[in-house]
Design a protein around this nucleic acid. Structure first.
Lengths: 188, 188, 188, 188
DNA sequence: TATGAATGAGCATTCATTCAT
DNA sequence: TATGAATGAATGCTCATTCAT
């Protein structure tokens, strides 16, 4: 009975608009931003936000997952670069530098009692697998210490994200933070 | 700056009770915990909380600063240990492992638009100076890379706190995270 | 008054489906049930519900009237039974026992400020006339007190419906409530 | 620590104001009336309403219980009248005639899934016991049929309340409804 | 005509903050 | 100075109704 086309195009567009607006607003004003504010930023009625995301928590989660999806895609794209050590380093640096806003969202979700691991697991083979590949290759190439596994690298990534955030606007300092992390991860 | 009328003994006691309760409650239930809940935990009326801390933000700030004060004291106590490199490493590890709950508070403050740097500066010569001493000595001893300065170390500390938190309950993983950080900071 | 273009066959079918679903849903989940829920139960889109009943109130009214229609038909069918007193008693008992769900609807309508009398008048010669016939015959036969008129009997019916509802699931108690009512209405 | 006097006087007065306003507003505009409206009618802030009644449901319940309490008091006061049959009849008539607005509240509570019986039981020995006394005495005096028990009388009372309400403004008709009920309850 | 996405007014509830006692 | 009742702005969420497809 219910197909998936007619107005579905508009609906999908609205969903995307909301998601995008939410990402921006949460990043800008924090996760405490009101749903109303997001609706306005998206240019839709508040009812529309709740139609697509039945709960503020659901919206937060969706934003978080969409970020993780993008990260996974990015990591995957780097998997076939020639120099495994370099690929690893570059991706870590990129991931860390891009993530500050994600942290707040993760925090908010955690505060709401959401099982973050479960959520991440939902991304499935996403980030985890992509990272796994990058890491293994870098370790095989002798570029990264052998005692690191994916969960630990993820913890380090998260930490570095906050570290970079704490470093403020000073480009040099941010780079230094990342550099320390990479040095710590390198073999030898 | 602020006139510091010594504060009647019972008043001071109340202030301390509130601060302590706030630290516990914020750590336990998150910074979203209501002021009322803190008042109850402290065994005082809500009016008393607001008499001592005119704003929830002020209370959060006070809790954060009190933690920093304790950290400063700890760092200072380590300044005269014989082996500067070891002292540095030990203190970093200690600070990081003890800090998880602090993070949420710093986040909340940041979200509230409080200039964290300013606040930290307010601890004055506290953490900053103690850390400066430890760092310089370790660098002179050739145990820590020379391109690190205090603000960067603080950023790294903050990041490592979150990293450890993200590592979860796995003792080994937590240690590994700290280890990576220390390796990254070490000279050579 | 209202132009009654025969309504395309499928349209009529939809109208009936909605009415039926509404009756069930209102009875099951109360009159606070959302229109959306009714649409789903009827297997139609929400737009269709509103096409046939421009207002939730209108839908409620239609359900109510449809019940009254059935009641009228039932009363009419009993009009030619041989024993007028017995017919009256049986019909009263039947009407009362079947009506609990109707009460909630009548309440909701009343709460919405609908003139219930006007609505009932709309059923026209329906319940009123059928009841009139039954009552007169029973009174003529000396089975029912002479000071009762149709409006009063209707008020008693409504009251008894709620009484039975209040009696709960206890079959014996429900019967007793009806019995008291019938005794009160009987002559002598 | 917490005594029960100082500002308690004001608080109690406010609680009473809210309860009274709620009773009026619910009776006037139905139980769908907004809490805000009640706050305004009571001349207090909306927060005050929620301080005293943590939920709209709780407020509804309190209003209902307060009515039942008054009814119980009234019934109890009639217990020592000389003529038990007369006392019973008078009290039933009074209770029924005074109750219209109560019905809506009972309905709302029932709709909210509140166990009405439990609530009524909470009035404790209130209405139930007072009614029990009246009923027994009237039955002993041979004025009321012996097969009635308290729960059934309560169901009849509720039904009669609605019946009277349905009878509208016509004094004569209202009296007739009550009369039928009393006749049905009388012995012989 | 049917559909269901969009809309936004309306509601219950929370909580930081104020102030009378 | 301590208390806790009062306040009301703000928020998440629901639902009847509209309208583009």
């Amino acid at each position: 009975m219910t197909a998936d086309r007619p107005l579905r195009a508009d609906a999908r567009r609205n969903r995307a608009k909301v998601l995008e607006a939410a990402e921006t607003v949460f990043a800008t004003r924090g996760t405490g931003a009101s749903t109303e504010e997001i609706a306005q930023a998206a240019g839709v009625g508040i009812g529309t936000v709740f139609r697509h995301f039945p709960t503020k928590e659901a919206l937060l989660e969706a934003v978080f997952l969409s970020r993780l999806d993008r990260l996974a895609a990015q990591l995957r794209a780097a998997a076939d670069q020639p120099d495994p050590g370099r690929a690893f380093r570059e991706q870590i640096a990129l991931a860390v530098d891009a993530s500050p806003a994600k942290n707040a969202i993760a925090d908010a979700l955690a505060a709401a009692g959401v099982e973050l691991d479960a959520v991440k697991a939902g991304v499935g083979t996403g980030v985890r697998d992509a990272l796994d590949l990058l890491l293994r290759r870098a370790q095989s190439a002798g570029a990264v210490r052998a005692d690191l596994d994916v969960p630990t690298v993820m913890a380090l990534l998260i930490g570095a994200s906050y570290g970079v955030e704490a470093a403020g606007d000073d480009r040099g300092r941010r780079a230094l933070v990342i550099n320390v992390l990479l040095d710590g991860m390198s073999a030898g």
